[in-house]
Write a protein that binds this DNA or RNA. Structure first.
Length: 907
RNA sequence: UGCGGGGUAGAGCAGUUGGUUAGCUUGCUAGUUUAACUUGCUAGAGGUCGGUGGUUCAAAUCCACCCCCCGCUACCA
């Protein structure tokens, strides 16, 4: 029956909730399937949310805004676990704040990802036999946009599967009109201020991608290499040599000096003389520079300013020529004579051979060294001197650092501060020009007549200096991170300072992985300060990497990646989300285990079934008029616990402790609510005579609804489905976040239930130890001399049956009528007896009591030891001392009862 | 090289403004199949909190030193 209805409604209107349709059909709606099936509801609920515009935020001055800007995924990308984690965290925060009544905006968009996309499109074209250059710039860009139109939306759709409540109506792209305007605005402003300049400095060059790359894109990896020792002859002194050591002999062609340390006595007399550069026979000077380490190698270093960053600096200090010996593909250029056209490895081999023949090769040693490689293609990066555009960093780095130092910008976890400072303290100018086509073209024109550089927002018609119309735009595009750096404000309309920008900016929290702190976070911070005068956000919440079950990074080459979409298909988005959030602290890496996904799925099912149980019973009484005064001990206990949970969870979430909050909700709902409270309440629901049934149902529903609300940010789908079935409200995601209230604090009832729980546990424990099957019901005597304790047991008699399989519960003041060989558990303030005459093993019982006696004696010794120590009594806080005293008293009393019991048994 | 993270039960992780009997998930053992859930329920075993020393009435937590693993960062050409 249900299945037929399901299909029917899905066909007529996916966007409407189950409840409405079923009500229309006049069928009992308050029922759920026996097991939770995420795939049956997720799509429908998501469509409903979108249709109702719940994700959409408009400027509303009556509400406080809360804004998160989504790190834009690459248009080439496919959803991976990192995205899933990142976006789950953001969605949790956004849903939480939205329910708290904030005007929550989660601003989404995608990134053109310059080099990543260009490389991918080139590959794609190559498969069709087309080379990039065949198409020309315009033709290539046309293909690139086609690619974007076809694949750019893929990852967005995947994010939706996760349940992301981003405002898709506001979706942006880093190369849309607004972002282009922001990019040119920033470029021209920085240029006018002198913060952007064009310079010939040594930079990182990828010979395969044929573009410059920034320092951040270079990955250093250790490689096995060699140390070649080569003799350079001293000019005019036959038979005298300076021995240098190098790992890159092929760069010898570009040497313009040999450097030694000024303090090095071995070389003092030779500084200022000239050497004959072997193979080339060019004369080069010997210079003194403290950069050289006397202890390392031979203490004499060949200096190749055009091909090594350190040598470049030395060259600047000593006015050395920069001789570029390489083409853009790293082969030796025309200056290389016979070595022209060889790649560096061929040239190295040939030159080493030639040096050997000349008798100038002294020795070759194996040597491990770090080699810079391009993070995209793993190609060895060549340091090359080329004219490139740079952003001057020194000035802009200062306020960015201060913001964190002053606490205006909070990084979570705090240890990230050090990494942040460290990078800013050592920051170098940012190379922003790329020899690529896919990206923002640099808004600079060169006058072909007078050489003037014109940087302008609009295409200039004539040269500002000589009026020539013969202008040519710079061929280069900008580093993809240049536009990403503006993302928090460019997406809100900047440079047009409109309503959206005015209201939603600055944003609140940025959620991202620690791996892009340098690429992105820092650049957003200084760009925002420079352009808007404000920080882009007040908090950065970092997360770690999702690794495989062996702790390895998930990667394509290892084939160990787990597709979040596969997880969602099999277990549901809620299970994936909860798994990614729990058991993990901010900034720490985590491992992915299918077992953990299963545990989360089980939790969703548990909540589902608890809800089913409540719905099955909800018709049994009218709960409209239930007042707090109608609640029983157990009801007040769970209400009070719920109330505390609301407070704790809200506090944790406000501190961004999402994993801790999720854990607390999980434990409360599963253990306190399902395993204890629902079990306590069952006898009341089953008993037609019970006058507190309405109170029980009221409590069940209230606690469930509040629990669902707290859980909703973590598990949006299952909570929404249950909520809509259980209540008449439209959606949980626009319902109010629960608030802590003193009215629901019932300390005495909490304490009473603790006593009951201890009694129940004790009975269960005995039953297990005595091997009493649950089918064997028992009579239980609860004996206590204290009135209030007896009252508690009397008030809770009914549920001992379901909790501890007690058939008959007798509460009395003393042991009258209880057989001597009854099994007993001594609690504080009470003794529980179970007269299982036929099952009791006296010896076993004595053994158990002896164990208990020893434990208590240990505790008493510990507590009395502490209290006997004047230092503790004097120095520890009074409350702590009181606590210890109370414990000591409790243990002492309990011990007396245990001893008495042992005496009874003749031990 | 500098900075940082981690070392807690078989596995994976929480927990540290110092303060009850160190938690959670999973796995294991035993029991259970009770009118929401076998994706359940109950009980249990399993830990010298990496090591050594110190501070303190009290240390997984603070300090010092050491050992192992992992990041980032830089480098010796």
């Amino acid at each position: 029956m249900n299945i037929v209805i399901d299909n029917y409604f899905i066909e007529i209107n996916r966007a409407q909730s189950l409840l409405y349709i079923l009500e229309d059909l006049n069928i009992m709606a308050k029922e759920l399937e026996k097991t939770y099936d995420p795939s049956a509801i997720e799509g429908r609920l998501y469509d409903k949310w979108v249709a109702n515009k719940y994700f959409h935020a408009e400027v509303d001055r009556s509400k406080k805004p809360f804004t998160i800007v989504m790190p834009p995924p690459n248009i080439t990308g496919q959803l991976h676990m990192g995205h899933a984690l990142d976006n789950t965290m953001q969605d949790i925060l956004i849903r939480f704040k939205r329910m708290q009544g904030y005007n929550a905006l989660w601003q989404p968009g995608t990134d053109h990802a310059a080099i990543a996309t260009e490389v991918k499109i080139i590959e794609h074209l190559r498969e069709q036999g087309i080379e990039k250059d065949d198409l020309g710039r315009d033709g290539f860009l046309k293909r690139a946009w086609e690619w974007k139109d076809e694949y750019g939306g893929r990852i967005v759709n995947q994010l939706k599967k996760l349940g992301s409540s981003a405002d898709w109506d506001r979706e942006r792209f880093t190369m849309d009109e607004g972002n282009n305007a922001a990019v040119t605005e920033v470029f021209t402003k920085l240029y006018d201020k002198g913060y952007i300049y064009k310079g010939s400095r040594i930079g990182n060059w990828c010979p395969v991608c044929q573009t410059s790359i920034s320092d951040a894109e270079v990955i250093h990896e250790e490689q096995d290499g060699f140390f070649w020792h080569i003799n350079y002859p001293v000019a005019g002194e036959e038979g005298r040599f300076v021995e240098i050591a190098t790992t890159r002999p092929e760069t010898l062609l570009g040497d313009t000096a040999v450097a030694v340390n000024p303090e090095d006595d071995r070389y003092k007399d030779i500084v200022g003389k000239t050497l004959i550069l072997p193979l080339v026979n060019r004369e080069i000077p010997v210079i003194a520079d403290s950069y050289v380490d006397k202890e390392f190698g031979t203490g004499a270093v060949k200096i190749t300013p055009a091909h090594d960053p350190n040598d470049f600096e030395v060259g600047k200090r000593h006015n050395l020529a920069e001789i570029n010996i390489m083409n853009d593909d790293a082969t030796i250029n025309a200056l290389g004579g016979k070595y022209e056209g060889m790649d560096p490895y061929e040239a190295r081999k040939a030159m080493v051979k030639d040096l050997e023949d000349l008798g100038l090769l002294v020795k070759v040693e194996p040597h491990k060294h770090m080699v810079g490689t391009h993070d995209r293609c793993k190609t060895t990066v060549e340091p090359l001197v080329k004219p490139q555009w740079y952003v001057k960093m020194a000035e802009m780095a200062k306020p960015a650092k201060e913001a964190v130092e002053k606490g205006e910008l909070k990084l979570i976890p705090e240890r990230m501060n050090k990494t942040y400072y460290n990078w800013l303290d050592n920051i170098r100018d940012w190379c922003i020009s790329r020899q690529l086509w896919w990206g923002h073209r640099i808004p600079a024109w060169y006058c072909q007549d007078c050489g003037e550089i014109i940087v302008s927002k609009d295409t200039p018609c004539t040269c500002t200096k000589c009026n020539s119309a013969n202008l040519k735009q710079d061929e280069d595009t900008l580093d993809t991170w240049f536009s990403s750096a503006l993302w928090p404000f460019s997406t809100l309309g900047w440079p047009n300072v409109g309503e959206d920008y005015d209201y939603f900016f600055p944003t609140d929290v940025l959620v991202t992985g620690y791996d892009i702190i340098f690429f992105w976070v820092i650049r957003m911070v200084f760009s925002s300060i420079e352009q808007t005068g404000r920080l882009p956000f007040h908090t950065v919440l970092f997360h770690g990497l999702v690794r495989d079950d062996q702790g390895r990074k998930m990667s394509k080459s290892l084939g160990n990646g787990i597709d979040p979409l596969e997880v969602i298909d099999k277990y549901g988005a809620d299970a994936l989300r909860l798994t990614l959030i729990t058991g993990n602290a901010p900034g720490n890496d985590m491992r992915f285990y299918w077992e953990r996904i299963e545990a989360s799925r089980n939790f969703a099912n548990k909540i589902w079934n608890a809800s089913r149980f409540i719905m099955m019973n909800i018709e049994k009484a009218d709960i409209k008029d239930v007042k707090l005064s109608d609640l029983t001990l157990a009801d007040k206990w769970i209400m009070s616990k719920m109330n505390e949970l609301v407070k704790d969870v809200t506090e944790n979430m406000e501190k961004y402790e999402l994993g801790i909050a999720a854990d607390k909700i999980h434990n409360f709902l599963w253990e306190e609510f399902c395993d204890w409270y629902i079990e306590m309440v069952k006898p009341r629901l089953w008993n037609d005579e019970d006058s507190t049934k309405a109170a029980a149902l009221y409590t069940l529903k209230t606690v469930l609804v509040n629990g669902l609300k707290l859980l909703h940010p973590y598990m949006p789908f299952v909570t929404e489905e249950i909520f809509c079935t259980l209540t008449d409200e439209e959606s949980i995601m626009v319902s109010d976040w629960p608030v802590y209230t003193e009215e629901l604090k019932f300390a005495a009832d909490e304490n009473a239930v603790d006593i009951i729980k201890n009694a129940v546990r004790a009975i269960r424990n005995i039953r297990t130890e005595m091997n009493v099957p649950p089918s064997k019901k028992a009579t239980v005597y609860m004996v206590s001399a204290k009135n209030e304790i007896r009252d508690i047991f009397n008030a809770s008699k009914s549920f001992f049956g379901t909790l501890a399989y007690a058939e008959n519960v007798i509460v009395q003041e003393d042991k009258t009528g209880i057989a001597d060989d009854a099994v007993s558990v001594v609690l504080h303030d009470a003794v529980v007896y179970m007269p299982f005459a036929e099952l009791v093993d006296v010896a076993k019982e004595i053994e158990r009591l002896k164990k208990e006696e020893a434990r208590l004696e240990g505790e008493i010794k510990r507590a009395s030891g502490m209290l006997a120590n004047p230092k503790f009594v004097d120095k520890a806080p009074a409350a702590k001392v009181e606590e210890e005293k109370a414990k000591l008293q409790k243990y002492t009393e309990t011990l007396e009862q245990v001893k008495e019991r042992l005496a009874q048994l003749g031990a």
